[in-house]
């Protein structure tokens, strides 16, 4: 039997809800709800949404994007010639937006690593916004 289920507040990104397909699988005596797709595709979809919708990159977005890439803080930092301490400082403050220069670097890096091929323009970024404007519901 197949259905869909909503995941609210995906990875603490309060503006994104994700709906995923579910199937029921028998494990021993129990019926278990299994996400009937590759969870990496869900993660990648949300990462793409963050880049495409020009969501302000704050500490929580940095952490999510870094984890989707499967990079430690040290490895992530090396790509920007920063120390891991700098990344830790970014991620520690969930709600603080990165400087525009750093945000542009992170967006471009993620865009390239995940082959999104999204056109990223500096002047498209709203420098005044410090938090995402809307709730986005994605159907994975």
């Amino acid at each position: 039997m197949k259905s869909r289920k909503l995941m609210n507040n995906y990875y603490g990104l309060g503006y994104i809800d994700v709906e995923v397909p579910i199937r029921i699988e028998k494990v021993g005596e129990e019926d278990v709800e299994v996400i009937d797709m590759d969870i990496a595709d869900v993660e990648k979809l949300v990462a793409k949404t963050i880049i495409e919708e020009k969501v302000p990159i704050r500490g929580r977005e940095v952490k999510f994007l870094r984890k989707v890439l499967g990079l430690s803080m040290e490895k992530f930092a090396r790509n920007f010639d920063f120390s891991s301490a700098a990344i830790l400082k970014w991620e520690k403050d969930d709600d603080k937006r990165l400087s525009l220069v750093n945000e542009l670097a992170v967006r471009t890096f993620v865009n390239d690593m995940l082959n999104f091929e999204i056109e990223i323009k500096f002047f498209d970024l709203d420098s005044r916004s410090t938090s995402p404007k809307k709730v986005i519901k994605l159907a994975a």
């Binding site: 995941m7 995906y10 990875y11 603490g12 996400i35 952490k63 999510f64 984890k67 890439l69």
Partner: peptide, 16 residues
């Protein structure tokens, strides 16, 4: 499982 995914999100664990 859906349960595992919820635990993953709580702990900030991804597929990688």
């Amino acid at each position: 499982s859906f349960h595992a995914e919820q635990r993953m999100q709580e702990r900030f664990i991804t597929k990688m």
